[in-house]
C-alpha cells in the first residue's frame, strides 16, 4: 500500500495558507503597528519639530539635531559614560556568568539550588533593586568607609551601577550559558583529551567555539541592556552628583523638560540613541555570528 490519500498535495495547503494568513496575522500586525511602527514614525517626525503636545507640532527642520550637537547638552557626556559602563559591564557580566555556568555544569552537590539562587535576582524589578542596593551601598559600605554616600562622586555611582546590573544579570546569562554548555557533545572534549589537550586548551578550542551561539546572544543582551539602562540608574543615583552619572536614556528623559524647545531636542536625542544602539547591536551580531561553528 503506497497511499496518496493520507497527505493532501502540498500545493493545496500552501494556497489555503496564502489565502488566510493575513487574517491570522492581523491581531499581531495591528498590535505591532499601534505599539511600534506608528509611534516610531510619529517620533521620527516629532524630532524635526518644536512641540508642547503632540497635536500641535511646528516643523523646524534639523534645528533639534543641531542643538544636540552644538549646545552644551549632556548628551555626549552621557554617551561617553554609557559607553564606558557598557564596556565594563558586558565584560564583567559575561565572564562571571560563563565562569558560574562552567562551575555549575560539573555536577557538584547542590547544583540546582545554586542555579536557582543565582537566577533569583533577575526576578526583582530594576527600581526595587536600585533602591535596595542604594541602601546597602550607602549605609553598608560608603558611609562607614568614607563618610560619604553614592552622590559624592561619579566613580561611586559608576561602580554602584556596575554592581547592581552585574548582580541582576549574571544569573540570567548563566542560564543561557548552561544550556549552551550542556549541548556540547561529550565525545568532542573526550577526543581532545585523548589527543593530549589540557583543560585550558579544551575550553579554548572546543568548548568556547561550540557555545558561540550562546555567547552571541548573551553579549547582545548585555550590550543592549546596559546601553538602554534606565530604572536602575534612576533608583540608584538619579544622575547624581549633578548630572554626572546620567546615562543616555536618562539624559533624554531629563532633557524632555517643560519648555517646548527641549521636547524636540529630547526627541532628536532619542532618534540618535536608537541609531547608535541599532548600529552597535548589528555590528556585534555580525562579528560574533562569524565565529559560530556548525555542530
Amino acid at each position: 500500500m503506497v497511499g496518496g490519500k493520507s497527505t493532501p498535495p502540498p500545493t493545496d495547503m500552501n494556497r489555503t495558507l496564502k489565502r488566510w494568513f493575513p487574517l491570522f496575522l492581523l491581531p499581531t500586525l495591528i498590535a505591532f503597528l499601534i505599539g511600534f511602527v506608528v509611534p516610531f514614525f510619529v517620533g521620527l517626525y516629532l524630532s524635526f519639530c518644536e512641540f508642547a503636545t503632540i497635536e500641535n507640532p511646528t516643523f523646524v527642520g534639523f534645528a533639534n539635531y543641531l542643538r544636540v550637537f552644538t549646545a552644551d547638552s549632556n548628551f555626549w557626556y552621557s554617551f561617553g559614560f554609557t559607553a564606558l559602563f557598557t564596556l565594563v559591564s558586558v565584560v564583567l557580566i559575561n565572564l562571571c556568568a560563563f565562569a558560574v555556568a562552567l562551575a555549575l555544569t560539573r555536577g557538584i552537590r547542590g547544583t540546582n539550588l545554586f542555579r536557582t539562587l543565582f537566577f533569583m535576582p533577575n526576578l526583582i524589578g530594576g527600581i526595587v533593586l536600585g533602591y535596595i542596593w542604594k541602601m546597602i551601598l550607602n549605609y553598608g559600605v560608603l558611609i562607614p568607609l568614607f563618610g560619604k554616600d553614592l552622590s559624592y562622586n561619579s566613580t561611586f555611582g559608576f561602580w554602584g551601577l556596575v554592581v547592581v546590573l552585574a548582580w541582576q544579570q549574571i544569573g540570567y546569562m548563566m542560564i543561557i550559558y548552561i544550556s549552551g554548555l550542556q549541548s556540547v557533545p561529550e565525545e568532542l572534549s573526550e577526543a581532545a583529551k585523548i589527543d593530549g589537550a589540557g583543560r585550558w586548551q579544551i575550553l579554548r578550542h572546543v568548548t568556547v567555539p561550540m557555545v558561540m551561539p550562546s555567547i552571541t546572544i548573551c553579549i547582545f543582551l548585555t550590550l543592549t541592556n546596559s546601553f538602554k539602562l534606565y530604572d536602575q540608574n534612576l533608583a540608584l543615583t538619579d544622575g547624581k552628583p549633578g548630572r554626572m552619572t546620567e546615562m543616555l536614556a536618562m539624559a533624554i528623559r531629563n532633557t524632555y523638560g517643560v519648555t517646548p524647545k527641549s521636547h524636540g531636542t529630547a526627541q532628536a536625542m532619542a532618534v540618535i540613541f536608537f541609531l547608535i544602539v541599532a548600529v552597535i547591536a548589528l555590528f556585534q551580531l555580525r562579528s560574533t555570528h562569524k565565529r559560530e561553528v556548525q555542530q
Binding site: S151, Y152, K240, P241, G242, R243, G257, V258, T259
Partner: peptide, 18 residues
C-alpha cells in the same frame, strides 16, 4: 527659569556640603 536651574544649584549645594 527651569527645573534644570534648581538641579544645578542643588547639586552644587550638595557638593559643597560633602
Amino acid at each position: 527659569p527651569s527645573d534644570q536651574w534648581k538641579d544645578g544649584v542643588g547639586a552644587a549645594l550638595l557638593a559643597y556640603a560633602q
